[in-house]
Write a protein that binds this DNA or RNA. Structure first.
Lengths: 156, 156
DNA sequence: TTAAGTGCAAATATTTTGCTGTCAC
DNA sequence: GTGACAGCAAAATATTTGCACTTAA
């Protein structure tokens, strides 16, 4: 069956919260981490470090940039979030999203910068093919498509 | 048929050189561009800006960093090279490669940093599925896999 | 109590830009 | 000759780090 379009809405959520997982793994639950984890959990789609900092500071103005980066680094290292570039359509910063059971791909419109997500089993099949063909054991996969959205196609 | 492994060797080369294409399109052929284009053409695999600058300066020490970035930007804009992140296994810099007719994916080993290429028609099928499912018209696609190579698997 | 975590400021890394001078066409 | 391009240095952007202080466990 064909992939379904997912826009800024996640359906296949992990069962435990980031907080629960980090807690289980023995990391300290600081005030700052609670805020950042909750924001990441509920962020619609993808956040960059700058926005995450801004959002966090709305709840606690003392939260520092370094803490944001250190938390993101921790979560990356624990395999709980993935770092995306989203094709650097606008600047060089990274975006972060909660890792989900179902792999998906990101499509960025070079015209308007809109980002779309799409779930398709082709991504899982890529994983399998990599494993079988090369012997490399995939950990995570990132698929990013530069494209032109229907609206921008008309506009051209 | 299964994808074939390609390591640091390109088989499906474009017919015209970068120089020929830029010349046709009316860009000026400066001494600096000739050097950079030739290096990009013959670079085995992927180059980053720093290495490209270093290599270029071996032929002409006066070549400047800004010229390298401006040339890369030009080639990107003309759709002649693609910019890769190779999963930022080591630092934040970008890598560049000549765009080829056959799409392929990049697999990076998180253990040793080795980068492998693999050609598979699944990438082309992804392009098709994106177009059909979302209406977005793909321009280029980037597939990057974090993985563990066979040697690093044993070592663990 | 104490080691993990935070804030701060400065450092690092990579890429971009304004300006002036040069060269391909 | 002239506008596209190059060199230079400084700026911009994004992220990381050393160190002293704070706090969760």
């Amino acid at each position: 069956q064909p992939g379904r379009i997912k826009v800024e809405l996640m359906t296949t959520r992990p069962v435990s919260t980031l907080l629960e997982v980090l807690d289980e793994r023995g990391f300290r639950m600081t005030r700052q981490r609670r805020i950042l984890l909750e924001l990441l959990e509920n962020a619609s789609g993808h956040v960059n470090a700058k926005d995450l900092l801004r959002l966090a500071q709305q709840r606690d103005p003392s939260i520092n940039r370094a803490t944001v980066y250190r938390t993101l680094s921790l979560l990356k290292g624990e395999g709980l979030i993935d770092e995306l570039d989203l094709l650097h359509l606008d600047g060089e910063e990274h975006f972060y999203e909660r890792r989900r059971p179902q792999d998906h791909l990101h499509i960025g419109c070079v015209g308007c910068g809109r980002i779309l997500e799409m779930e398709t089993n082709l991504v899982d099949r890529l994983n399998t093919e990599v494993q079988v063909t090369t012997g490399f054991r995939p950990d995570s996969i990132r698929v990013e498509v530069r494209a032109l959205c229907p609206e921008c196609q008309k506009r051209q």
